[in-house]
Amino acid sequence: MDERAFSRVAETYAGRLYAVAYRLLRNRADAEDAVQRALMKAFAARASYSPRWAVSTWLYRVLSNVCIDELRRRRPPPEPAPGHGGRAADGVERADLARALDAVPREARLLLALHYVDGLSYLELARVRGISVNTVKSQLARGKAILRRALEN
């Protein structure tokens, strides 16, 4: 992949990569930093990109690696950033969901984010994380069960 092709790809995916990073890291500066680092890593490794991969799978793999390492450094999880809830009416619900997501283990949270931001299929998710499709399914189901319980309370 040459430099120009890479910047086109980066432009196409920057928004979605940001959405995943923002929902995982929960603040704008960290999300931007994560996307920046992921794109730089992908750029440096663009020679090793193999076309048997979908570009999205590859970029999400690199981004997941950066975000997960960032989450490793964060214990305990930070307080939710105030004032990002959007309009007041759905703000409460969104804040609830953001809080409920904190209760979901990191691996499941990452799969949920990838699945819902860009609609990645089970197979794509399995490729991004290097896990089996069955593990993807059980992780997503477990994550959603935890969310449901947290939202009911």
Binding site: Y18, A19, E32, G86, R94, Y116, V117
Partner: peptide, 9 residues
């Protein structure tokens, strides 16, 4: 779906 797509940079 609504929650995750709403994170616009």
């Amino acid at each position: 779906r609504e929650f995750f797509t709403a994170a616009v940079p």
